[in-house]
Amino acid sequence: MTVLILIIGMAVVTYIPRLLPALFLDRFNFPAWFQKWLKSIPYAALGALIFPGVLLVEKDQPLLGLAGGVAAFILALLNLHITLVMAGAITVVLILQFYIF
């Protein structure tokens, strides 16, 4: 029963931040500077999501995550499809884990 309450509680506090902008956005017309800020959010958010988090995929081996990230970066520079970028990063980390780390 407590687990059920926990799960429902987590669901509620997860949905609220996602929902609030949907409910209140209509009342605002954003000024130009705010729109520029909004346009920049994806880049800033992804930067923050990637680093330094990628170093922590294996807590004691930051170089392992770094190697995967660098592999993804190189493949992304080649403009490969996103699935191939993901597969490349995974493959590099798998190989490194089994043969080096």
């Binding site: 992804l46 990628v54 995929v57 993804a72 970028v85 597969a87």
Partner: peptide
């Protein structure tokens, strides 16, 4: 798990390359 970082990196790099400003914003954020 590295695969999901690959997703982020693969999505971020192409547009960040085209626009120096957005690339810089991503780097500063890191």
């Amino acid at each position: 798990t590295v695969g999901l970082y690959g997703l982020f990196i693969g999505l971020l790099v192409p547009p960040a390359r085209k626009s120096l400003s957005f690339g810089l914003i991503a780097l500063v954020s890191m």
